[in-house]
Design a protein around this nucleic acid. Structure first.
Lengths: 179, 179
DNA sequence: AGTCCCATGTAAGTGGTTACATGATTTG
DNA sequence: CAAATCATGTAACCACTTACATGGGACT
């Protein structure tokens, strides 16, 4: 059910169509809550039924019509209520760890290659986050409200990716010793 | 489908019943791949059908009978094959980040309380991991094979929890300024 | 002519959670 | 006497993924 709340947060920042939301979930909000366009359309439908959002049809020239969704008073109240609720800590699911733990059951060299690949992916994502940090938040002390919260979430992404990069390096050097 | 492989890894380390596996998924392997007993029994059934594991009925005195599962040659081959396959990087899903990003839509104080709660949970988990590290891996340089791989996975858990603790502290001090 | 972008969906399948169910034995 | 542990499952539901579907306009 959390996707609905992620959509509410995004629509509170700015109203938008299902398609536009899907684009946002490919970046920004999608960095910490991913969702496909199919999920988003389904959730929007549910949210209209619940009265959390309202969709206004917008005719466009030379482009398909679209429905622009905005958060209703009920939706805003529901979001505020949910924010006060305790969140369950995320269930641990790290496939790479399963492969490392099982490395002795197969070819350690192949697992090492896989860790190297993940190292690259995390380093790339870290670089993206750092670029966003420099571009959008050059003076973090001066931030307030919404933009400060956005910055804090980005900081979480940076810390997570940095720790994955560091860990991959530790694993790589240990597995290199082994082969 | 990854649960099946996590079970294969665990059964390669030591054969066991569904119940014993469920206990292991409450700790050790469960620290990086969580699963309920219902999932485990369902997966074992599938794996028997696929011929990846074999279950031997064991009669016990003063305790219910159990089925002890071990990995078959086919299961071992399948695990080795899977280890060489690329793993999709985990999809990002961090509910706490959604709450922080949406904090302005509700009571910032409540979100702060929630971040403090998560800080405690991650600090506790970090302490557990550090205790395991000290108890089971006092001389990490001397490790090899399976136990070295187990150590590396534990190191990942320690790094992840440490980075969550650090991040929570950064968020707490920023949100405290705000209220 | 082919591909990408805009825009919105349906349908089938997989994986995971929650609730229910049973029954003996051990521990406080 | 109650609660926890051992041991194994079924069933309903929910969330998410993957595949399929449509159609115009812009770009190369």
């Amino acid at each position: 059910m959390s996707l609905e709340y992620a959509i509410l947060v995004s629509l509170q920042e700015r109203a938008g169509s299902g398609y536009e939301l899907a684009r946002r979930f490919d970046k920004s909000i999608g960095f910490f809550w991913s969702a496909s366009h199919q999920q988003i359309y389904r959730s929007l439908k549910r949210m209209v039924e619940l009265g959390w959002v309202a969709g206004d049809a917008v005719a466009q020239e030379k482009r398909p019509d679209k429905k622009v969704y905005r958060v209703s008073a009920e939706g805003a109240a529901e979001l505020a209520r949910w924010l006060g609720e305790p969140a369950a800590p995320a269930t641990a699911r790290n496939e790479l760890s399963v492969k490392i733990r099982g490395a002795s059951c197969g070819d350690v060299g192949q697992v090492l290659e896989e860790v190297r690949r993940h190292h690259r992916l995390h380093a790339e994502r870290l670089a993206v986050y750092r670029a966003i940090e420099q571009r959008d938040f050059p003076e973090p002390e001066r931030l307030s409200g919404r933009s400060r919260h956005q910055f804090l979430v980005l900081r979480g992404g940076i810390r997570t990716e940095q720790s994955m990069v560091d860990w991959c390096e530790e694993v790589i050097s240990a597995l290199e010793d082994e082969i």
